[in-house]
Design a protein around this nucleic acid. Structure first.
Lengths: 155, 155
DNA sequence: TATTGTTATACTCTATAACTATA
DNA sequence: TATAGTTATAGAGTATAACAATA
């Protein structure tokens, strides 16, 4: 991840890109992402792994492809992610008897326990974001980001 | 870059991460980034290259390290970026007589001409963002993103 | 001793094609 | 024929250590 910092760099101010929405968006995302990485690091979880485990917990029995679709991770890249989590005993993948092409993913007891602790840390992450935003209109921010997220997708 | 799309995925809605600020921020940034990549592709410029050229144009004679600092690109990774732009004849790097460790970067005529065309495409990119946001409070959005960008940096 | 640029290198994330087994 | 998972592989982007030249 990029470690974008403005430093009040005159070079970037003069160039005019420092005030652009795309640049600010990238900066903000990078800062939040770094905080999330640091938040999950004590549990040896990266953001994608934590998100995958949350999806499995909320949708037990789901296929790994469903996780990939939800997170925008391509099928080949899901294999390693699920392999690692299974190797660590955080989730199980059992053949779906009804359709033996797919696996049904579920959290193990260890996975559930780890996620309970990771969730508390993640709550702290969200609290930091809220504190950072102060009295900003988070509802409006939410709406604006949802709008931008639909930019190219036609969705 | 990740190709995050929500698809109205029930898996992600159930997991609770679909409505989180960090997730929305990531989605929005990915969509805007993809639009920027597509915008600059006709000029064979990636976002970092375009940003670097804008900084050189605004601060002629600058050192490549100053660009790296402004954009959050580390010194070793600036070498290839500047090399490529110089090989394409878009900028020149001449030894600074006052401090022969550094180079003074400047746009060539070809670089200036290419950037003039790229700027028009980039204006279209910004117009698409504005249109996408509609009547959203862009000033408030700007402020909120600036706040978030200062999350970890103490700045 | 510190700074600028460089080389070599490695790791993560992402992307594509082709394969298997199942349907 | 289409889908779920897999393998191999390639490309970005990013990260650190060590070096040469210069200050």
């Amino acid at each position: 991840m990029v470690n974008i910092e403005m430093h009040g760099s005159s070079a970037i101010e003069n160039s005019g890109i420092g005030g652009q929405l795309g640049f600010l968006l990238r900066q903000a995302q990078a800062a939040v992402w770094q905080d999330l990485i640091a938040t999950l690091a004590p549990f040896d979880l990266r953001p994608a792994q934590y998100a995958a485990l949350r999806i499995v917990r909320a949708s037990p029995g789901c296929k790994q492809q469903e996780i990939g679709d939800a997170l925008g991770i391509q099928r080949p890249n899901m294999v390693r992610l699920v392999d690692d989590l299974r190797a660590r005993g955080l989730l199980t993948t059992v053949r779906n008897p009804a359709d033996r092409r797919s696996y049904a993913l579920e959290l193990t007891a260890a996975g559930t326990e780890l996620m309970a602790r990771a969730d508390r840390a993640h709550d702290g992450h969200e609290a930091r974001l809220a504190a950072c935003l102060g009295d900003a209109d988070t509802v409006a921010l939410n709406g604006a980001l949802r709008q931008l997220g639909r930019l190219g997708g036609g969705g």
